[in-house]
Nucleic acid binder design. Structure first.
Lengths: 145, 145
DNA sequence: GTAACTGCAAACGCTTTGCACTCCC
DNA sequence: GGGAGTGCAAAGCGTTTGCAGTTAC
């Protein structure tokens, strides 16, 4: 549960992997963490530049790669241009609106068990997974009619 | 089952959607269809330019979008640069090697039933889905050691 | 003090776009 | 014949890279 990680653990995780703790890295991770909407790099930049006026997109990209490497976030490539980032590394479903691109997480009951059953026949250990469902969200349906 | 669609059905599907049947469109679709490796636009281009020396990447992209629109293929955005294309629209798992990018399809027994159970609580109808498992394939493991 | 990190700007690579020519129907 | 499709080249845009100045430790 990433939500329960305190600053000490976070700092330790950075350092264990040979990375320094910097204001920018903390700001980026803490920006993504509570958001349920899987922001893009650009959205993170827009969201942070008020509080951190000199932060740059380059730093955001570098930090996102670093966070991915130490297992804190996941990248979702979505074939509509930009990549989206999310902090939930557990098994869950991404509900993706094909019109507006909004993403919400969804965890049906027992998804952990169902998932582990489904992949029990594999003869290797997955390093991660991703489950998407595509649909048209209510707001987009209204807009069209 | 796309594999069973004959040329007549394919032509009809194009025309029903208001698109003309062209040599290039057929060549592109028939190139992707039997391949299990989910080629990128560039790979399709490389694979076709011997038989169709004047075919262009622009046409390939336009055709891929068209094929997606009429439901013949799916796009897989994979956050390592290019988008990959696959003709299997049924529920299945993509086994993605995180090192070399190779993708294989995997259909555990009963995946259709398991999937439909899993999403039975949704109050909308999905237009599609995508399930990925990330791992390191045998060939890449050997290369590393 | 020094190696790692940041910010900026330029470079990159995949994809899209515009337009004259060509081909399907 | 006419409008849709192709091929080419240029433009677009998200992302990466290089480097001088700055910061964590």
């Amino acid at each position: 549960m990433k939500e329960l990680m305190d600053d000490q653990e976070l700092f330790a995780l950075f350092r264990k992997n040979g990375y320094k703790v910097t204001t920018q890295r903390l700001a980026i991770y803490k920006f993504i963490l509570p958001r349920g909407d899987h922001p893009s790099a650009e959205q993170i930049y827009q969201g942070l530049k008020n509080d951190y006026p000199t932060i740059s997109l380059g730093t955001i990209y570098k930090t996102l790669h670093l966070l991915k490497k130490i297992g804190l976030i996941q990248e979702l490539g979505l074939n509509e241009g930009s990549v989206r980032y999310e902090p939930d590394m557990e098994v869950h479903i991404n509900l993706v609106c094909t019109q507006c691109g909004k993403i919400h997480d969804y965890k049906p009951e027992n998804i952990e068990n169902i998932w582990h059953n489904l992949i029990s026949k594999l003869n290797f250990k997955p390093t991660g997974q991703r489950i998407d469902i595509y649909y048209e969200c209510a707001a987009c349906k209204i807009k069209e009619s």
